[in-house]
């Protein structure tokens, strides 16, 4: 790790001010589950770390009408164990329970995960699969516009995620095929059904990060049943290939995981 300056603001406004002052050399520290290992390996060297852990009003889980509000600094373990989440969107609580290991879940945050947009992270699939809205200190961004590419988001300089709003679906579930080594998602499929709208979001597989499957969605809109996906396939073009899984294998797994997610959402 290289030397860096460290700041611990108390408000979002102060944090944004510090971030602006640092120019491109500042980094927000949320749970630090990606940033700190990267810094230890000397792969990242921000001149300033702005620690959000003491900023007021960035945590908390609240059900407001038919929307679930989760503060950006809410830890995975808190989402996983929350009675509110388990009742409103059990598929989201289950997803959070499957992130990393207990140490990661007790440090890592939803805002940090989304801002990082690791192509193998779980939360981006939930955001896209539930049609979430990402709230920042400046604006509200629909999930469909937020995830712009691998480790890339619509966030602008000085913009800080404060919370994520999930519309409560009728049915939702996440099915993950973990990478055997890292246990990140090699393929993860989130399926959400709200009224006539069905969303199918895939993480871990795409070379450009999380993406939706319009064909699968259309089929499930007709009938929300795993059988509706029979005969549908995903082209391997544009999917990741590595020593663990070729694009072909990932394409195949997307189909399998999607069906299993639908079955899970149906309580099968």
């Amino acid at each position: 790790m290289y030397a860096f300056n460290y700041q611990r603001p108390k408000t979002v406004r102060q944090a944004a001010g510090l971030l602006a002052k640092a120019g491109g050399d500042g980094k927000l520290l949320a749970g630090g589950q990606t940033l700190l290992p990267t810094m230890k390996q000397r792969l990242a060297s921000p001149a300033m770390l702005i620690d959000l852990n003491q900023v007021d009003g960035m945590g908390g889980i609240e059900l407001k009408g038919r929307n679930l509000h989760i503060g950006a600094m809410t830890k995975h373990a808190d989402v996983a164990n929350s009675h509110i989440v388990k009742t409103a969107i059990p598929g989201l609580a289950a997803l959070a329970e499957g992130i990393g290991d207990p140490a990661v879940r007790n440090r890592g945050t939803i805002g940090g995960s989304i801002a990082n947009n690791d192509p193998a992270a779980d939360y981006p699939a939930a955001c896209l699969g539930l049609g979430a809205t990402i709230v920042t200190n400046k604006r509200k961004i629909p999930a469909d516009e937020f995830f712009t590419g691998m480790f890339d988001t619509a966030l602008e300089d000085g913009e800080i995620i404060t919370k994520v709003i999930f519309p409560v679906p009728q049915k939702a579930a996440y099915e993950k095929f973990p990478n055997p080594a890292s246990r990140y998602a090699m393929v993860g499929v989130f399926v959400g059904k709200k009224g006539s709208d069905v969303r199918v979001a895939v993480t871990g597989a795409g070379a450009n990060g999380v993406f939706r499957l319009p064909e699968f969605e259309a089929a499930l809109k007709t009938r929300f049943n795993a059988k509706s996906l029979d005969g549908l396939s995903v082209p391997a073009d544009g999917l990741n290939g590595d020593i663990h899984a070729s694009p072909d294998y990932r394409a195949h797994l997307i189909g399998v995981m999607a069906k299993r997610a639908v079955n899970k959402a149906l309580g099968k």
């Binding site: 055997p180 080594a181 890292s182 590595d242 020593i243 663990h244």
Partner: peptide
């Protein structure tokens, strides 16, 4: 390629 537990199972 397998120089860490990210890739070595």
């Amino acid at each position: 390629v397998t120089a860490s537990y990210m890739d070595y199972t």
